[in-house]
Design a protein around this nucleic acid. Sequence first.
DNA 1: CGCCGTCATAGGCGGATCGCCTATTCACAG
DNA 2: CTGTGAATAGGCGATCCGCCTATGACGGCG
Lengths: 225, 225
Amino acid sequence: MNRAAHSPESGKSSILLVDDHRMVLDGYTLLINAQPDLTVCATAASAPAALSAAGTSRPDLVITDLTMQGRGGLDLIKDLLAVLPGLRILVCSMHDEMLYAERALRAGAKGYIMKDSDGPTFLAAIRKVLDGGIYMSAQLSARVLDAFAGSRPRGSSSPMEKLSDREFEVFRFFGEGKTAKEIADQLNLSPKTVSVHRDHIKEKLNYTTSAEMIREAVRWVESQN
Amino acid sequence: MNRAAHSPESGKSSILLVDDHRMVLDGYTLLINAQPDLTVCATAASAPAALSAAGTSRPDLVITDLTMQGRGGLDLIKDLLAVLPGLRILVCSMHDEMLYAERALRAGAKGYIMKDSDGPTFLAAIRKVLDGGIYMSAQLSARVLDAFAGSRPRGSSSPMEKLSDREFEVFRFFGEGKTAKEIADQLNLSPKTVSVHRDHIKEKLNYTTSAEMIREAVRWVESQN
DNA sequence: CGCCGTCATAGGCGGATCGCCTATTCACAG
DNA sequence: CTGTGAATAGGCGATCCGCCTATGACGGCG
């Protein structure tokens, strides 16, 4: 186990925590700092803060939530890896893994764990990722292996799987009652880009009107809560 | 301040924490137990566990998340109040308050705070609710006061009560994913008329954008089974 | 009975948005 | 190296939105 590559002095692996809920940051910090081999070197409550903190503190591992206000967590993963290639990222989300984990791992994360995991599971995930492994639940890994095995009962799965990451993100925003313009502002895009995404979503999911698409987006977001 | 009614021995106000994310529970516990006048008497990670824990530990206050798996922070509020009438409940949600706070308060909660609040704000909310007050953000209270300012022919029923028959009809059509034009065609009206109804609905229900109104319409239609 | 508030209807108008088309860049697969 | 798809965004005409005004109908009220 050679975890201490970036922490020559302490011998502890340094971790950057990213979550927009302070209480969650406190909870993680409490748990992690109680471990002899781990230490929290920085925390951040937003994507920009996370990028900045990652640049200065050079953590061995970043643990991040997926859904932060504005600029989804997937973008943060990509940005972090663009700045610090090889950085290990463990996604810790409150959302059902089936819906987000695949995207997160494809974006470059090395693990996905749900927030309702208990301490030991959580620490096991951290150490597995620090050791160069990929952490995911048994269910999820089964699903991934299944997908790689070539079995394709396509169509029975969610129609949303046809959407690209960006389209999916826009879809969710529409489901939250946001205007195209509001979404554009929040993602720092031109309204035109959002409208193109909207068009593609409509086409991929076979909706004839935007109102219909929005309704289904709202229903879908509802079903996630 | 007579907060210790149910905690004769310690003099501290006892709090039951409910959240399905253990890390969140840890963070809250850390903060609360550091206060001289507050103590966490129990935690629960599910609605049934919360009901059971509330019955045995008789807390002065319950702090609960709204969205737990198995559907229903709102149901938990109602169930808790059914078992322990007069119990004070502070909802601590990660969701935009505009979307859930009203429902939570109508269900009987005495406060609503977002998870990204900092410690002092959080403690202020706890103490305010323990003292018999109602805690909500300035924005939210402004919205509530605004809504109650010009209307109370009925004590407090559905917000849709304020809509005229025609407006309500239009509202439902929007909730079914219909376009303004489609609604106009179906009701043999000019699109302009429908748009005026839409404007009035937005005004009466205090929505700032049409997208927000449509989202709530969809949610309402959904809730009608 | 006349007055006022509300409802339902709808037109006007300027600016915003939609729907569709095209284009550039980039990444990745074949 | 070439093609496909994703992400970004501009153009443009038609449509829609948001706000204002207006008319007729109904219903309570002094």
